[in-house]
Computed example of a mutant assay.
Amino acid sequence: MYKNDPYILVLGASIVDIIGFSRRKYNSRDSIPGNIKISLGGVCRNIAENLARVNVNTSFISVLGGDDQGKNILNNSKEVGYNMEHSLILEDEYTPTYMAVLNEKGEMESAIVDMECLNKIDSNFIDSKSEIIRNAEYMVVDSDHPELLEHILKKYSKDTKFILDPVSASKASKIKHLVKYFHTIKPNRLEAEVLCGFKINNDEDIKRACDYFLEQGVTNVFISLDADGIYYKNNSEEGKIKTTGVSVKNVTGAGDSFVAGIGYGYLKKLSLIDTVKYAIAMSVITIMHEETINPNMSEEYVHEFMKDINWIES
């Protein structure tokens, strides 16, 4: 993979998702009738798969155990079409696992994550992958490992453009000093508050937060406002956009598919607003299905789906 064959590089966790879906009103400390599904997940793995599903040339660096679930993830990468040949395989370890319980509305009530083996990826391993990092058009990262991320950003920021999914507000707090290294950030409201250092209570605060990020050196900012849509801004365009009438079954992978939509827009050289719309469409397609990644996701499916979306812009 070189510059004449543009690709997006994703770095992060591959996780086995065990998701419980409530069939009636959720009550804590109670046994709730429902169903349980096991699937492949991890924020960055989900992003990589969604990118591949919409025909984006994608390479994914992760860490896997030598167990059956690790083999399942490798097989999935080959079937869907994202490249994991540069990943770290730990034959005597177990692949990371995520367990969550969703309420009757498809919203997460609680979750536990076992990601200990991810600590085996260090700066030496990363630097052994320097060629694939330097030749990527964009590199998608999260804030799971602040020290390692700082090493990557400081060493490779002149070679590729970084896209950040902060993952959580608590993790975002540990990397806010690194904001200036990112080309693109996609925080939700709480993560944006942590990164910019002040509360976001209204649209004026959102604009002020975006201006702060742009002043730090970020090129494109996308702030997720949940039901209120997405606020996006760069030095020439800004706005807030959402869609309505969405039937929600599982919100777990919505942010992951949105980031993949951003990557799609960048490699296809779409305008900022068209990139946002494509990313939102991918997100909506995701939450309308019980799986974390909608098995119908494809470039053609998204284009057809977008024909029937009613956009509300402000």
Score class of each variant (00 low, 15 high):
residue 4 N to E: 14
residue 99 M to F: 09
residue 162 F to P: 04
residue 197 G to H: 10
residue 269 K to Q: 13
residue 5 D to L: 15
residue 48 A to L: 05
residue 199 K to M: 07
residue 171 K to F: 12
residue 69 Q to I: 15
residue 205 D to L: 08
residue 156 Y to R: 14
residue 244 T to N: 14
residue 231 Y to M: 11
residue 84 M to Y: 06
residue 264 Y to W: 06
residue 59 S to D: 07
residue 70 G to Q: 09
residue 149 L to I: 08
residue 290 E to C: 08
residue 218 V to E: 03
residue 89 I to L: 13
residue 14 S to P: 01
residue 37 K to L: 14
residue 81 G to A: 11
residue 100 A to T: 15
residue 20 G to P: 01
residue 71 K to R: 15
residue 192 A to T: 04
residue 235 N to R: 15
residue 247 S to I: 14
residue 29 R to Q: 14
residue 118 L to K: 03
residue 102 L to Y: 03
residue 155 K to C: 05
residue 217 G to F: 08
residue 310 N to Y: 14
residue 181 Y to H: 05
residue 174 K to P: 03
residue 148 L to I: 15
residue 116 E to W: 08
residue 302 V to N: 00
residue 174 K to G: 02
residue 218 V to L: 06
residue 197 G to K: 11
residue 239 G to Q: 11
residue 25 K to C: 10
residue 242 K to Q: 08
residue 74 L to P: 01
residue 239 G to R: 10
residue 46 N to K: 07
residue 160 T to Y: 08
residue 116 E to H: 12
residue 160 T to F: 09
residue 190 L to V: 09
residue 54 V to G: 00
residue 311 W to P: 02
residue 209 A to E: 01
residue 304 E to Q: 14
residue 96 P to C: 06
residue 256 D to R: 06
residue 283 S to F: 10
residue 233 K to P: 01
residue 120 K to R: 14
residue 64 L to Y: 00
residue 277 K to A: 00
residue 202 N to E: 05
residue 125 F to Y: 10
residue 134 R to A: 12
residue 274 D to C: 06
residue 142 D to Q: 11
residue 139 M to Y: 10
residue 101 V to W: 07
residue 185 I to T: 04
residue 194 V to G: 02
residue 46 N to D: 05
residue 168 S to V: 04
residue 137 E to S: 11
residue 41 G to A: 08
residue 268 K to F: 08
residue 122 D to M: 13
residue 159 D to W: 12
residue 10 V to W: 02
residue 284 V to N: 02
residue 238 E to F: 14
residue 180 K to N: 14
residue 140 V to W: 03
residue 128 S to F: 10
residue 69 Q to Y: 15
residue 133 I to N: 01
residue 236 S to M: 12
residue 72 N to F: 08
residue 314 S to I: 15
residue 248 V to R: 06
residue 101 V to R: 05
residue 224 S to E: 03
residue 167 V to E: 02
residue 103 N to V: 14
residue 162 F to M: 07
residue 114 D to Q: 12
residue 196 C to F: 05
residue 28 S to T: 15
residue 127 D to M: 07
residue 150 E to D: 10
residue 307 K to P: 01
residue 39 S to K: 10
residue 285 I to A: 01
residue 128 S to R: 09
residue 179 V to Q: 03
residue 79 E to P: 04
residue 69 Q to E: 11
residue 230 I to K: 02
residue 198 F to Q: 09
residue 234 N to K: 09
residue 257 S to T: 15
residue 238 E to P: 07
residue 200 I to G: 02
residue 197 G to Y: 12
residue 218 V to R: 02
residue 27 N to D: 10
residue 58 T to D: 00
residue 95 T to A: 01
residue 21 F to G: 03
residue 33 P to M: 13
residue 23 R to M: 12
residue 278 Y to G: 01
residue 191 E to R: 06
residue 135 N to H: 10
residue 191 E to M: 11
residue 41 G to H: 04
residue 72 N to W: 07
residue 23 R to A: 11
residue 88 L to P: 00
residue 91 E to K: 14
residue 81 G to R: 05
residue 137 E to M: 10
residue 301 Y to E: 01
residue 12 G to W: 02
residue 149 L to K: 02
residue 53 R to E: 04
residue 276 V to R: 02
residue 52 A to H: 02
residue 306 M to K: 15
residue 31 S to W: 12
residue 270 L to S: 03
residue 168 S to M: 05
residue 66 G to Y: 10
residue 235 N to H: 14
residue 311 W to E: 00
residue 153 L to Q: 01
residue 12 G to R: 03
residue 291 E to Q: 11
residue 204 E to C: 08
residue 240 K to Q: 15
